[in-house]
Every structure is written in structure tokens, then in C-alpha cells.
Amino acid sequence: MRKLQFYLGLALVGLVVSAALVSLVWTPYDPLQVVPADRLLGPSPAHPFGTDGFGIDIASRLLVGARYCLLVGIVSVTLAALVGVPLGILAGQVGGWVSEVVMRLTDIVYALPALLLAILLAAIFGGSTLTAMAAIGVATVPAFARTARAGTLQVMAADYVLAARACGTRGVALAARHIWPNIAALAGVQASIGFAMAILAEAALGYLGLGTPRPTPTWGTMLRDSQEFLFTAPLQALWPGLAIAVAVLGFNLLGDGIRDLTDPRLREAS
């Protein structure tokens, strides 16, 4: 059952990744080519998902959209992990006022929704993929910092850390040799879930017009464009919505799967 969850997650994520990879070398049609004569076609052998309000092939746009979905996910999660995990380890390892400062800072960022941050950044720099990634990344830092801190506190209480201290290991060496390897799986789970959140956030930003600008096809902007045809051509909204759901579900299942498979307590029981 646990393995099934993991493999299902892997399959869904694999689908998104392959779509992105395929789009780099081949798309059925030009995803930017407006064909006024072909507006709002239903599914057909020529256009399996139909065409959008500009007569562009939806399948082609979905494939290219996968690219942006992954790009935003990878960059924002990496950014968040690179900042959040070391902060969390620092807070857990040093404790005291350092921990207080780090945790209060993350509280503040937590209280600030990613959307607000994105609006802020978009207002200053103009909405772009970059501002969307930055906003989502910064907003995800606290989740990583908290997870890393909780994991670190657990590791710090273990006897092997005491033994390592008696061996003279401290500071960065302690973090690199003992703490990080033992919280890496935890960070992996967080990354997976963060990825799902990032995809959702990117779609939301795209939908609001605060992310990647037109005409670049992202799933969020596709959803937005479909809005005006919601009653005449509801399938327009279905496809990008489905794509987002597949990606989010995939990464969530993958995260749960990693957690279950790497938890020694659960592993022993199975």
C-alpha cells in the first residue's frame, strides 16, 4: 500500500517531467502560433485536447506549460531549501537566542502570504517567472526551516551526537556528518510537498496575471484564459486544471511515499 502510493506519485511526477522534456524537442503545433480559423475547436484527431481562444493547440501549450511548472517548482524549492535547511539546522544545533531569532523571523515570513509577496514583487519589478519563483521561494523558507529545526532537535538528543562531541566534533562538521544525513529524508519529504505547493502557487499567480506573462503558456495563465469560455467551452478549463491536479497529487504522493519508506519504524513493521 505504501509502496503503491510512492510508485503512483513517481508515475504522475514522471508524466509531468516527460511532458516537459518532450516539449523541448517536439510539440504537435507551435504553442504560440495564433490560428484565428481554428478557435475553440473540440477534441479531434488533429487536436486531441482541442484548441484555445486563439486557435492554438492546447496539447502543445500543456506540454510547454509543464516546463514552466517544473522550472518554478525546482527553482523556488531549491531556493527555499538552500536558505531554510541551514537556518533550521543552525537554530536546532546552537539553540538559545539564535534559535529564537531564526524562529521569530520565520514566523514573520509565515504570516506574509506568498501571494502578497508576489504582488509586491510584481509591483516593483513587473510580473515575471522570476518574481513568481522568488516570491514562492521566500514564502517556502519557513517550512524548510521548521522541518529542519525539528529534525535537528531530535538528532541533537541522540547519543551519537553526544559521542561525536566527546570525539571533539562540533560546528559545521557536526552538522555535515551527523545532523544533515539524518534529516535529509525529512528535507526530501518537505521538498516534495513544497514542490506541490509551489506548482499550485505558480498556477495561482499565473491565474492572477502576476506570474509568467503572456504569450508564454503556463497552466495558470491557460486556466485564466479559459475563464471567459467557461460556459461555452468548459473543456478549456478542464485540461490545465487536470494538469495542475496531476502534478500536485504526484508530488504529494511522492512526499508521503518517501516519508513512509524512509521511516525506520514503519520500515520495520512492513
Binding site: 541522540a158 547519543d159 551519537y160 553526544l162 559521542a163 551527523h178 539524518n182 525506520p264
Partner: peptide
């Protein structure tokens, strides 16, 4: 320490564990 199940880092090879005081 009392319990070697918790006093040895599960993600380190025994050689690295034993060599840790030499290095550090």
C-alpha cells in the same frame, strides 16, 4: 554509552565512526 543502537550514527560507516575522534 549505554545503548549502541543510539550511540552509533546509523548513516555512517563503522570505519568513519571509529575514525571520527582521530579526524576531529
Amino acid at each position: 554509552f549505554q545503548d549502541p543502537r543510539s550511540s552509533l550514527n546509523p548513516r555512517m560507516r563503522v570505519g568513519d565512526i571509529v575514525g571520527e575522534p582521530l579526524r576531529s
